[in-house]
Amino acid sequence: MKTPWHLWLIGVLSLLWNLGGVFDYLMSQLNVESYMGAMTPEQRAYFDGFPTWAVVFWALGVWGALAGSVLLLLRSRYAAAAFAVSLIGLLVNTIHLFASQGSAAVDLMGRGALAFTALLIVVALGLWLYARAMARRQVLR
């Protein structure tokens, strides 16, 4: 089947979008002061106190999204699975935020960051659904 033009558009845009997540993850995990210094002391303590399992799910979210974008551009049916892993990683860490912080999550992260997290979830869900639809139409092999 001929590859639809929108696969290339969504693939490239998702790759650029997900590279932002990779940047955030690497700057945080490498504890780059010029990046981490922009956080409040409370935010820094929250990220410094991440349990190992939460870091693992964060990594799954970030690297799964990057893999999904690359696999989508390669027209691989495994793109949907990679995006699913990414969505799970994102959801687990979002649940971790609210389970550990409760209503204080709004004060800790700020409304803008929480709105961005909601956008991340919508985009991740959309990418998974898109890749799944392309696999079902046999655009992905």
Rank of each mutant, 00 (worst) to 15 (best):
V92T: 09
I95Q: 00
L125I: 11
V123M: 05
K2Y: 06
G20R: 10
K2E: 14
L60C: 09
L74K: 12
M134N: 05
W8G: 06
S86D: 06
P41R: 08
P51E: 08
S34R: 07
F23G: 03
L60T: 01
R44W: 01
N31Q: 13
A59R: 11
V92D: 01
A99V: 10
N31L: 08
V122C: 09
V12G: 02
L60A: 10
P51I: 02
Q101N: 14
F116M: 15
G110M: 13
D48W: 00
L87I: 04
L91S: 13
I121G: 06
V70N: 03
V55Q: 11
S100G: 05
G112M: 13
A135L: 08
A115Y: 12
R75F: 12
L87H: 04
A133K: 14
G112E: 13
V106P: 01
W5R: 15
I121Q: 04
I88K: 02
F23M: 05
Q101Y: 03
A59W: 07
L13D: 04
N18T: 07
A54W: 05
W58T: 03
A99E: 09
L91E: 07
A99G: 04
L19R: 06
S28P: 03
V32W: 07
W8Y: 15
F50M: 13
G61Y: 01
K2C: 01
M134E: 14
S103D: 15
R111S: 12
L119D: 06
Y46K: 00
I95C: 00
Q138S: 14
V92P: 02
S28T: 15
G112K: 11
V32D: 03
L30V: 04
F98W: 15
D48Y: 03
G21K: 01
K2V: 12
T52V: 13
W17T: 02
V56K: 03
M36K: 10
Y78L: 15
Q101P: 02
W53E: 01
S100E: 00
A65I: 03
L87M: 11
V106A: 12
A65L: 10
T52C: 01
M134D: 04
M39N: 12
L71K: 05
R132Q: 13
P51F: 04
L125C: 10
R77P: 13
G11F: 07
T3I: 14
L13W: 11
G61E: 02
L119I: 14
G49K: 02
A80S: 14
F47C: 00
W128I: 05
G20E: 13
A54D: 12
A65C: 06
A135T: 11
A38P: 00
H96A: 13
